[in-house]
Design a protein around this nucleic acid. Structure first.
Length: 289
DNA sequence: CAGTCCTCCTGTCGGC
DNA sequence: TGCCGACAGGAGGACT
């Protein structure tokens, strides 16, 4: 599920019920997610006040009043849900006790924030704020795609010399941070680049950014920005924290559209699917070279 | 070091 | 209806 736009949507959804609020009790219903939870996890979070929520790449960052930061990665199937849902009337049905509801933040005032993750590929960690930027999770990350550090020059430099297909390179969080399978497919389609093309050949030869890089960088920026504005993409059981659905999935031009018509005007080809490093790539073999 | 593959876990869907 | 394999938004770690 969660690529950068979905995590940003989660952050925005949780901020109103967490920022400035006390965690009266942290309930961990199992000792691990993908990895073991940090030592004394519940104890260290109980009684803490949330200063603010942040995000880096696909990581949700919960800044606490003891200068530590709770890092949460949602993996493939992680999500946060607020109970009772915003706008609910007293007496409305409550939930949050399902088989895959693993972590519960009991906030002051009775609101609960429940972390659910049926595949348990997500994980949480606690790090001192001073070590956040260099910790093992965030330390090696490339630039945020919507930042001044992400440019034709920086992406060109990151791709130069790489022999892997551009599709795989863009999934590498050290190259650019926050893209996942969906948005890489969409960005490559928008920029007319085949997912099979070698990263090095996208980078161009000299220090001058290549034509393809000049198309790719804005395509990545645009698709991520548009997806954030749409509240992310809703696939399968994913929903925003407040229960609303993102709607960017309706804007997919290639992802999940194998065999359907290419949407480029005048193109009569059909969207193809290939597997690269174990993941599906959707693309138009005619428009993307 | 770089690139590729396997793996963690559960659920769902399509085909036979 | 039931069984089985393929596949699903990620990425760490083992391997070549």
């Amino acid at each position: 599920m969660p690529e950068l736009p979905e995590v940003e949507t989660v952050r925005r959804g949780l901020a109103p019920v967490m920022e400035g609020c006390l965690i009266e009790r942290l309930e961990a219903r199992r000792p691990d997610l993908r990895f073991p939870l940090p030592d004394k996890f519940s104890k260290r979070l109980t009684g803490r006040r949330v200063i603010r929520l942040g995000r880096r790449a696909k990581y949700l960052l919960i800044y606490l009043d003891d200068e530590s930061v709770l890092i949460s990665h949602l993996g493939m199937s992680g999500r946060f849900t607020i109970y009772p849902p915003p706008g609910a009337e007293p007496g409305d049905e409550e939930e949050g006790n399902g088989r895959h509801d693993h972590i519960v933040f009991h906030m002051e005032g009775g609101t609960r924030v429940v972390y659910t993750d049926h595949r348990r590929f997500g994980y949480m960690d606690l790090v001192p704020e001073t070590e956040l930027a260099t910790c093992r999770h965030l330390g090696g990350l490339g630039p945020e795609p919507i930042s001044n550090e992400f440019s034709s020059e920086s992406l060109g430099a990151a791709l130069r010399g790489k022999k892997s297909p551009i599709k795989s390179a863009l999934l590498d969080q050290r190259v650019v941070a926050g893209l996942g399978n969906i948005y890489v497919c969409e960005a490559l389609y928008r920029s007319g680049i085949s997912p099979r093309r070698l990263a090095n050949s996208v980078a161009g030869k000299g220090p001058r950014p290549s034509v393809r890089i000049e198309r790719l960088v804005p395509a990545i920026r645009d698709v991520i920005s548009e997806a954030i504005e749409a509240g992310g993409s809703t696939l399968r059981d994913y929903a925003q924290a407040d229960g609303e659905l993102g709607y960017f999935q309706h804007s997919f031009q290639v992802y999940g559209r194998e065999g359907e018509a290419c949407l480029t005007k005048g193109c009569t080809a059909r969207v193809a699917r290939i597997v690269q490093s174990g993941r599906s790539s959707f693309f138009c073999p005619t428009c993307q070279r």
